[in-house]
Design a protein around this nucleic acid. Structure first.
Length: 446
DNA sequence: TCTGGGGTCCTAGGACCC
DNA sequence: TCTGGGGTCCTAGGACCC
């Protein structure tokens, strides 16, 4: 049974695009290997845990060896033709920028939304007649022609292969992409989902966790009230869903019915980051409080450098401490408001303070620090009790250090404590977003 | 999934104010 | 001080995505 009058819903021409095996393909292209024929995995060798993770696998590696992106390096099949390379995040970021510049030749900037490093949403509603003025072509034909044209142009210019989900709205595009287009090998990795397909396609998505926004937890919660399929979700009582799941429940109900009223051009441009943070799993269990505090200090500075680079101050710090397996005392996660700052000294002091306030001597395996309540202004609020001179010199020092690090790399300046056992900043200095940044990386893009 | 990492949004409960 | 009510801010925790 249909619950919505789809004639009243926004009818757009959305292309939800993702790059097939993005990292793996970029690596193949740069090495001069055929992206479709080469068996290759991009493997992150976490230097701290020693247990690598497969970040991406080429289509051939997936097909022949059945490698999935979540598998661990330990479990890789032994195959003489399988190539393994470390990730170069900065290279992928550059490639992503090139790609999106090309997308802007098909749509205006406000009709393009960069969804992730390898996914973009294009609203081509206003471009179709521009590119395909022929009045004998139907709207549907024009959408497909547009998708084909973009795939071909991008492949010619970059060697990348695109999967495209065509939809009447972004949600339908996303579902078409994730659950259909990616598997359409013989149909050019393209699929189209419209309002008329809700019952035949949207409701048939299975298992439910394939559906955008439904993870394993939500699946379990839904099962508790007798909802085990998208069709049941679409036909459930929306009030009950709201009662059990809040606004998320209401949204799930709408999505199950193919409803998404987003208009890309009307969505505010991507706001600046609301928080910056770094976290890491430690290479072993840490029990020495001094050692733990060294890691916290380094992390506090690392994130401080990031917010300075982005020209902002933080008014709220957050510390996450995860314990070792088998540790009886649990870890903790606490935040604290502070006067706006971005200096190493302030932030390090606050983070250590927060740590000491709650630490009970547990064995630690995971540490995370993030800064939120950011103000993106160069002007800073001065604490009345702060001595202006001291403040300026601290700030000056931080800036000089940042400059040197930006030019020569993080390892060029490390505090004496980093030389102590347990210090992690040197070992991690080459990482961008937790992955290997590669030589000559884009430091400013993290 | 005996440990990858970086983000976002939502909710419930407590504190506090008027 | 056996129970007013509305509003806001803050915090911890949960869940999701790439």
């Amino acid at each position: 049974m249909v619950h919505f009058d789809y004639k009243k819903e926004p009818l757009r021409d959305i292309l939800f695009i993702d790059v097939k095996s993005f990292y793996a393909t970029v690596e193949c292209i740069y090495h001069g290997w055929d992206p479709l024929e080469t068996m290759l995995v991009v493997a992150s060798h976490a230097d701290n845990t020693g247990n690598g993770l497969i970040l991406a696998a080429s289509p051939k590696a997936k097909e022949v060896l059945g490698i999935s992106n979540v598998s661990r390096v330990d479990n890789l099949p032994d195959h003489p033709l399988l190539k393994q390379v470390p990730p170069r995040m900065s290279l992928y970021i550059k490639e992503n920028m090139v790609l999106n510049q090309l997308f802007e030749t098909y749509v205006a900037a406000q009709d393009l939304l960069i969804y992730s490093i390898d996914e973009s949403i294009l609203d081509v509603t206003r471009s179709l007649n521009l590119f395909f003025p022929d009045p004998n072509l139907s709207r549907q034909e024009k959408r497909w022609l547009m998708a084909r044209k973009i795939q071909k142009d991008i492949h010619d210019q970059t060697g990348l292969v695109l999967s495209i989900g065509i939809g009447d709205n972004p949600l339908l595009g996303k579902l078409a992409l994730d659950t259909d287009a990616k598997y359409q090998k013989t149909n050019g990795y393209t699929a189209e989902w419209t309002y008329q397909d809700v019952q035949n396609k949207v409701w048939q998505v299975h298992p439910m966790t394939e559906f955008w926004g439904i993870g394993s937890r939500t699946k379990k919660q839904l099962a508790k009230i007798g909802i085990n399929t998208i069709e049941q979700l679409a036909n459930a009582n929306v009030d009950l869903l709201y009662y059990r799941f809040g606004v998320i429940g209401e949204q799930l109900y709408h999505h199950a019915n193919g409803i998404d009223r987003t208009i890309l051009a009307e969505t505010p441009p991507a706001a600046k980051e609301k928080s910056y943070g770094n976290s890491q799993v430690l290479p072993r269990n840490y029990t020495d409080q001094r050692e733990i505090e060294i890691v916290i200090g380094e992390l506090a500075e690392q994130v401080a450098a990031r917010i300075r680079r982005h020209g902002c101050l933080t008014s709220c710090i957050h510390l996450y401490i995860g314990t070792a397996y088998g540790e009886v005392d649990s870890g903790f996660s606490h935040q604290m408001k502070i006067p706006a700052t971005n200096t190493n000294k302030d932030l390090k002091t606050h983070c250590i303070h927060l740590f000491r306030k709650y630490y009970k001597g547990q064995a630690i395996r995971h540490v995370g620090i993030s800064y939120s309540k950011l103000t993106y202004t160069q002007a800073r609020e001065l604490d009345l009790f702060d001595e202006l001179d001291k403040h300026l010199s601290e700030e000056h020092l931080d800036k000089v250090i940042d400059k040197i690090r930006a030019k020569y790399g993080f390892t060029s300046i490390v505090y004496a404590t980093s030389k102590l056992a347990g210090a992690r900043s040197i070992a991690r200095s080459h990482l961008v977003g937790g992955h290997n940044g590669g030589a000559g990386g884009l430091d400013g893009l993290s």
